[in-house]
Amino acid sequence: MALHRIFLGVAGLAALLILAACARTPAPKPVHFFAEGMPERLSDWSVVYVAEGRLRLNARVLPYDLDSALFTDYAHKLRTVWMPEGASARYQADEALDFPVGTIISKTFYYPRGEGDTVLRSDDAGAEADGGLTLGKVRLVETRLLVRRESGWIALPYVWNAEQSEARLMRTGDLVPLTLADKDGRRQQIEYMVPDENQCAGCHGVDLKSKQIFPIGPKARHLNHDVAYAGGKANQLQHWQEVGYLGEVPAGELPRNLAWNDVQAPLEARARSYLDINCGHCHSQKGAARTSGMWLDSNTHDPLRVGRCKLPIAAGQGTGNRAWDIVPGKPDDSILTYRMESTDPGVMMPELGRSLVHEEGVELIRQWIAAMSAQECGA
C-alpha cells in the first residue's frame, strides 16, 4: 500500500510537470529573413510575436530609441533591429548606419489605452524593461518593416487586427479610426493613416538622385545617448558594438542631437533636433525637397539655407500670404510655422504621417523663431 501511494505521488507529480510544460508558451520560430516576396502576415517574419498577452521580441531582436522622434499623431513607437548572425552595421557620421543585407528594422506604432474605447494622447514613455508591451495596456495600430535585401531596402506596412493577435500586410495603406483622449478628458475622433508603399518610399527616399529608400532614424546622432537595458544604463552605440551589431566607431566625440523636449537643453539645439528628425530627411541637400532651397537637417548651418529671411521657391496657398520662410523674431509672419500649424493637405508640413497638429512641436519652433534677433527681411 505504501509503495502504491508513493507510485501515485510520483505519477501525480509527473503529470503536473507535463501539464505545466504544456501550459508554457512555446518558443517562437526563429526570425525569418525573406530574401524576396512580401509575406502576408507580420508573424511570418517572427521579429515580434504575441504570447501570454504581451508583444514580445524574438532572440537577438534589439530594441532601440531615438533622442527625438518623428511626430505621428501622438503615437508611441517600439523600434527594433535584427541582423543575421555574424553581420554588423558600419558606422557613418552623417547618414544612417550602413546596415548589412539581411537586416530587418521594425517600428510598431501604438497608443496607451484610456477609458472605454479611447486611446491616450501622451508623451512616449518607451517600451517596457524587456522591450515588450503588455497588450492590456496598449492598442497596437501598425508595424512597419524596413528590410535590407541585395537590391536595396523595401518598406512593408502591416496593420494589427482588432484582436491584437496578428498584423496583415496593407500595401495600399489604411485608415484606422481612433478616439484620442487627453489628460483633461477631452476626446477627439481621428483617422490614423497607415501609409501605402509609395508614401513609405516618399519619406524614406532621402536621396532624390538615386531614388532608393533608406532608414531615417538610426543615425549616429540620434542613437548617441544612454538608454536602460536589463543590465543597467548604457550608451546605445556602445551597446550595439558589444552585442555585435555595430562595427568600429571612431574615437573621440561623436555627433549627438539633443532631445527636442528636454527643457534643460538650449533652445537652439532642441529646435534644430526637432526639425532634423521631422523635416531634415526631405529638406536636405540630397532629399526630395532640396529644390526648395530650405535645408533643415542638423548639418546645415547657413542661416539662409535654414530659412532665415529666405524667399520661398513656390508661392500661393502654401505660403499663407507670408513673404519669408522664417522672419526672425516673428513666428506669426513665418511660412514655416504657418505650414506646421495647418492640417490642409495642400499646405501642411510634413505632408505625410500626420492628421493632427503637433502642438508642443509647433510651440517649440515658435519660441525658437521668437528668440532670434529681430530682423527686417528684404531691407
Results as ranks from 00 to 15, higher is better:
F34Y: 15
F34Q: 06
F34V: 09
G37Y: 06
G37D: 11
M38G: 00
M38Y: 13
M38F: 12
P39F: 07
P39Y: 10
P39K: 10
P39T: 11
E40D: 14
E40V: 14
E40Y: 10
E40I: 09
R41S: 13
R41K: 15
L42D: 08
L42W: 07
L42E: 04
L42G: 08
S43V: 06
S43W: 07
S43Y: 09
D44Y: 08
D44C: 07
D44P: 01
D44A: 15
D44I: 04
D44W: 05
D44G: 00
W45V: 11
W45H: 13
W45E: 03
W45A: 10
S46V: 00
V47P: 09
V47K: 03
V47S: 05
V47H: 04
V48F: 01
V48L: 13
V48I: 12
V48K: 06
Y49I: 05
Y49H: 13
V50I: 14
A51V: 02
A51H: 10
E52F: 03
G53P: 02
G53F: 02
G53H: 07
R54W: 00
L55M: 13
L55E: 07
L55G: 05
L55D: 11
R56T: 05
R56Q: 11
R56M: 07
R56C: 14
L57I: 02
L57W: 01
N58S: 14
N58G: 15
N58Y: 08
A59L: 11
A59N: 11
R60N: 14
R60F: 11
R60H: 14
R60P: 00
R60K: 15
V61A: 05
L62C: 02
P63L: 12
Y64L: 04
D65Q: 13
D65H: 12
D65A: 03
L66V: 14
L66K: 04
L66C: 05
S68L: 08
S68Y: 12
S68E: 08
A69N: 15
A69Q: 14
F71P: 09
F71E: 08
T72D: 00
T72S: 15
T72G: 00
D73M: 04
D73A: 07
D73F: 02
D73C: 07
D73R: 09
D73Q: 09
Y74N: 13
Y74C: 01
A75W: 06
A75F: 03
A75D: 05
H76M: 10
H76R: 13
H76E: 12
L78S: 08
L78V: 01
R79K: 13
R79V: 01
R79H: 08
T80S: 12
T80L: 03
T80A: 11
T80Q: 12
T80V: 15
